[in-house]
């Protein structure tokens, strides 16, 4: 599925300073019954966001109108647990294009990159600085520059560089995906498969 190119993103951010946010929290299993990829944003963080009677939980950050934006900032070990890509779909569908944390679970990171969400891993110290900046001003802007691999807090000018391999960076900046790449090398794959004992 095609996604928007990612170059430079400047946006306010939504803070979620909780550690070990697993993909069952991002989207509970009972919302995985669709056979198409649409509408998952409505159930993003469903059980933290809504009560059993579907009324919004007022103390959850997505229900607080002062916070908005295309960047989600979360505590360490974000996206652990189930491999469900639905978690990344829900985050994308809700409107986020970038998730910032001090540590990501592997499968979630791969899934995000594959659908055009940029996971930005920062140091624990820089993560705290972002949380403090948002706490001081809910409209604080963050700039994520993929080409320069730099994340900047606009209000303070503080910045930190982040890592991404050049293959994935090229894909995200151009809206390409791995399937395009693999389709272009099928003869090589077929030759390889011919040697397999399985």
């Amino acid at each position: 599925m095609a996604y928007d190119k990612f170059t430079v993103l400047t946006s306010t951010a939504v803070p979620l300073p909780i550690e070990n946010v697993d993909t069952d929290q991002i989207i509970p299993a009972r919302f995985l019954k669709a056979t198409e990829r649409k509408g998952f944003g409505d159930n993003l963080f469903r059980d933290w966001r809504y009560n059993g009677d579907d009324s919004p939980k007022q103390d959850f950050v997505l229900n607080n109108p002062i916070y908005s934006g295309k960047i989600l900032v979360a505590g360490k070990n974000f996206g652990s647990g189930s491999s469900r890509e639905h978690a990344a779909w829900a985050i994308y569908d809700y409107g986020f294009r970038c998730v910032v944390s001090s540590f990501f679970a592997d499968i979630f990171k791969n899934n995000s990159l594959n659908i055009g969400i940029l996971p930005v891993q920062v140091s624990p110290e820089f993560l705290d600085k972002i949380f403090l900046a948002i706490e001081a001003d809910a409209k604080a802007e963050i700039t994520v520059d993929l080409d320069k691999q730099l994340i900047t807090i606009a209000a303070t000018g503080e910045s930190e560089s982040f890592a991404i391999n050049s293959y994935k960076k090229h894909n995200l900046m151009n809206g390409y995906d791995d399937i395009d790449y693999l389709q272009a090398m099928k003869d090589e794959i077929r030759t390889f498969a011919d040697k397999s004992i399985y």
């Binding site: 599925m1 491999s83 469900r84 890509e85 639905h86 990344a88 499968i107 791969n110 899934n111 594959n114 659908i115 995906d177 791995d178 399937i179 693999l182």
Partner: peptide
């Protein structure tokens, strides 16, 4: 190991 749906398609 486990993979996401984009990788299932791959």
């Amino acid at each position: 190991f486990g993979i996401g749906t984009s990788e299932v398609e791959m």
